[in-house]
Computed example of a mutant assay.
Amino acid sequence: MAFLADSVLDAALSEISSNAVALHICKQAPSSYTQATSTHSLGNKSGLSFDAAANGSPNGRKISTSVSNGSVSASGDATHWAIVSGSVLLAHGLLPASQAVTSGNKFNISSLDIRIPDAA
């Protein structure tokens, strides 16, 4: 069975929290920076703040953030989030709940966890 110390998982999560420039809401899962910031993006929020790494559920480690007053730039159904830095897609995943958004409005995400599970 593989094992990774919490400090190893925390280092990966620190890379995200220390270098995140913006969170984009997307109409589908992006596989590149361009898809996250352009092709699939419906809006974004910069100036993210993350909680310290903590135990994840059901295992692993996690960091958490929330978003208020993100800017919606295109109308559609936001189903995914993407976190970017410079020209790098750092992480992406499903939103806690799909959101119908309208260009010119604001979006909020009350709680978003980024979790790395324990090695198996």
Rank of each mutant, 00 (worst) to 15 (best):
F3M: 08
L90V: 05
S85T: 00
H24K: 08
V21Y: 10
T65R: 08
S31E: 12
K106A: 00
A5R: 00
A100E: 01
F50D: 06
S85D: 04
N19E: 06
A100T: 15
Q99L: 13
L48S: 11
S57V: 13
G60I: 01
P117C: 05
Q28E: 15
R61W: 00
H80Q: 15
A53Y: 02
K106F: 00
S46Y: 02
S85K: 03
P58Q: 02
I16V: 15
A119L: 08
S18R: 11
G76V: 02
N19F: 06
T102N: 12
A100F: 03
V8L: 03
R61P: 02
I114N: 01
V88E: 12
A54C: 06
A22M: 10
L90E: 04
C26F: 09
T65M: 10
P96D: 08
I25P: 01
D6F: 05
T37Y: 01
D51T: 15
A29N: 12
V84G: 07
N108T: 15
A91Q: 10
Q99N: 06
S17F: 05
S57A: 13
N69C: 01
S87G: 14
F3C: 02
A20K: 03
V72G: 07
L112S: 07
S110R: 09
S31H: 11
R115Q: 09
S32K: 07
S73E: 10
Y33P: 06
F107R: 00
K27E: 12
G76H: 02
H40R: 14
A36L: 09
I25E: 00
L95R: 06
S38G: 14
T102M: 08
A36P: 09
S98C: 05
Q35Y: 10
G93M: 03
S17N: 07
H40V: 08
H40N: 15
V101F: 01
H40Y: 15
A20Q: 04
L48N: 10
G47L: 06
G76K: 01
H24C: 12
A2K: 12
K27P: 01
Y33A: 05
S41A: 15
A97M: 12
P30G: 12
A97W: 08
L4A: 11
N44H: 14
G43H: 04
A36W: 09
S111N: 12
N69I: 04
K62A: 06
I114L: 13
L9P: 02
I83C: 05
A82K: 10
S66H: 05
H24V: 04
S18N: 15
G70F: 05
V8S: 01
A36S: 10
L112K: 08
I114E: 03
A82I: 10
S41M: 05
E15N: 14
M1S: 13
S71C: 02
L94S: 14
T37W: 02
L13A: 03
V67S: 00
N19W: 00
T102I: 14
A29R: 14
S73A: 13
A36Y: 09
A5C: 03
L48V: 11
N19Q: 09
S68P: 08
I116A: 04
D77C: 00
A119Q: 06
P96K: 11
D113L: 07
A22F: 07
A12F: 06
S46C: 07
H92T: 15
S64D: 09
S31G: 15
N19R: 09
S18K: 13
V8P: 02
A120N: 11
F50M: 06
S57I: 13
I114V: 13
H40D: 14
H80M: 11
F107G: 00
S32M: 06
T39H: 00
